[in-house]
């Protein structure tokens, strides 16, 4: 065992941000951000060891298979990739995961879910987008349902959610719909995030050392 000197230089990954800054902007405490850094390092070095989460690494973590494509995983990855440069940096990872924290206000979760389902970034969830998502889900689940039945499900969903009757769901209608169907938000909360410091303890020896 070597000894740790007070002058040890800590090398962080590109895109690293200070835990105190991230904690001040998110639902996480400083300790939780440090624990998330441990998880981030693991995910971001699983295939390409550059300290950034690439799409294949995200797929590997979600599905145990780096080649498994999935419409919804792609959407999540794109929303986490705030700078839209094809990788998820540490700050993006923490800010995005914060949406899923149990203490984050519901309004943020509702808005995130809307962006997730607005596949073409039009500001609305349209019938075609909803159908594309239903078909993707059915395909992923190896379920075979007739096109007629899929259309019935879409019609029924729009009957409930599209209160203005213009064949698209706007953010206001979405908010109302989610309030009537709160189970739609269950994916937007990860209880794990409350226990993250136990799952990924960061040994705070690596606190920044002042000169």
């Amino acid at each position: 065992m070597g000894c740790i000197t007070s002058k040890q230089i800590i090398k962080h990954t590109p895109g690293y941000e200070e835990p105190t800054v991230l904690a001040s902007e998110t639902s996480f405490s400083v300790n939780e951000v440090e624990a998330l850094y441990e998880l981030f390092k693991k995910l971001s070095n699983s295939i390409i060891k550059d300290g950034l989460i690439h799409k294949e690494e995200f797929q590997l973590a979600l599905f145990r298979n780096s080649n498994r494509r999935n419409l919804f995983a792609d959407r999540i990855f794109d929303l986490f990739d705030i700078k839209r440069n094809g990788v998820i940096e540490f700050g993006e990872f923490v800010r995005s995961l914060s949406i899923f924290h149990p203490n984050t206000p519901e309004a943020e979760k509702i808005a995130f879910a809307f962006r997730l389902y607005d596949l073409r970034h039009t500001g609305y969830i349209e019938r075609e987008e909803l159908k594309e998502m239903v078909l993707a889900l059915l395909n992923e689940s190896d379920l075979f349902i007739s096109d007629e039945f899929v259309e019935m499900i879409i019609d029924e969903t729009f009957r409930q959610a599209d209160s203005k009757g213009d064949d698209k769901i706007d953010p206001e209608e979405w908010e109302e719909f989610v309030k009537q169907n709160p189970s739609l938000l269950k994916n937007m909360t990860l209880p794990y995030l409350k226990d993250i410091t136990m799952a990924f303890p960061s040994f705070v020896l690596n606190s920044e050392v002042d000169d």
Partner: peptide
């Protein structure tokens, strides 16, 4: 009269939306 399951309920079952697996060791 029972209503059809809404599409978003179906979609929310996708594994691609289950980020909990990120935390599994």
């Amino acid at each position: 009269k029972p209503s059809l399951m809404n599409a978003f309920e179906l979609i929310s079952t996708s594994q691609g939306l289950n980020l909990g697996t990120l935390f599994e060791k």
